[in-house]
């Protein structure tokens, strides 16, 4: 493949510059003082790197750090629980769709996938009314239920594709040994499907982490507001310098960035498992 080496170099450079420049710039800004960022031309490296913006965001007893810390706890709870429920339900359903024949299977599978084609707001909006009817506004439960309903279709699809690609022979061997379907699912299919399940969980978690709108309306205060909502609130406030805002932004992307860096092969295989056919 030497013939297009320079082309590949160009491509590599493109990906690096394209993906990293904006993120680098936010980090660079967050390590400077207010006065330093105002300089022309800008400092391409922080002249005297300082963590004071990060300290202002997370430490101490002020209004801002309190909100950031509490909403960090919230976002982990909401994303974590929603991910677990989504993956569990999607695994069961995906197995049924992939391996069992039953009446209405095609229609139901299509209906599930069709909800993905709608822009989210046409399906998820009235949820607010439903949630308020059941008294679930401003509760973890309400936010988690909405996340689960939003991410189930994609999760089911990814897992369905993954399970369909598993070799049938092993399962059949299990059936011949007299194991029930549930036993086969539990002892044979699940262990084989672990990589697919991990992919699905990571992708679901990342989607949940990025949510802003639903939690904005479904949560009323800091008892349930996730980090994204707390950061948007910072942006709308007077007297929050851009350097501090950048630090808050970098703080909020640290977790997804870490996941991408360490677990990217699962993300890639998960996102692609449905598209190949």
């Amino acid at each position: 493949m030497a013939r297009n080496h320079w082309l590949r170099r160009f491509g590599i450079l493109l990906i690096l510059v394209w993906s990293l420049t904006p993120v680098y710039w936010a980090v660079n800004t967050s390590l400077q003082t207010d006065v330093q960022v105002a300089s022309k031309p800008a400092h391409y490296l922080p002249p005297t790197p300082t963590l004071r913006n990060y300290r202002a965001v997370v430490s101490g007893g002020g209004d801002i750090p309190n909100a950031i810390r509490r909403s960090t706890v919230n976002i982990f709870i909401e994303c974590g629980v929603a991910t677990i429920i989504t993956v569990a339900l999607a695994t069961l359903a995906a197995y049924a769709f992939a391996r069992l024949r039953f009446r209405g299977s095609k229609i139901l599978f299509f209906a599930v996938l069709a909800t993905m084609a709608f822009p989210a707001y046409t399906t998820l909006i009235p949820l607010y009314k439903i949630m308020s009817t059941f008294g679930l506004v401003n509760t973890y439960t309400g936010i988690i239920l909405v996340y689960v309903s939003g991410f189930l279709p994609l999760a089911t699809w990814i897992l369905h594709s993954y399970m369909s690609s598993l070799p049938l022979a092993i399962e059949e061997a299990g059936r011949v040994d007299g194991a029930s379907r549930m036993q086969v699912l539990w002892h044979v299919v699940l262990p084989l499907a672990v990589p697919g399940i991990i992919s699905t969980a990571i992708i679901t978690f990342l989607f949940a982490w990025a949510q802003f709108l639903f939690p904005l309306v479904l949560s009323s205060d800091l008892s349930t507001q996730p980090l994204t909502v707390a950061i948007a609130a910072l942006q709308g406030r007077h007297l929050v310098p851009f350097t501090l805002l950048s630090a808050a932004g970098v703080y909020a992307i640290a977790v997804p960035a870490l996941i991408v860096v360490t677990l990217n092969r699962y993300i890639v295989s998960g996102l692609l498992s449905g598209s190949v056919k």
Partner: peptide, 22 residues
């Protein structure tokens, strides 16, 4: 490089506004 590639996709939209304002 693939990890670098998917990074922007994984970031919350709320932060995008901050990043690109800069």
């Amino acid at each position: 490089l693939i990890a670098v590639l998917i990074l922007p996709w994984a970031l919350p939209g709320v932060v995008e506004g901050i990043v690109w304002t800069g």
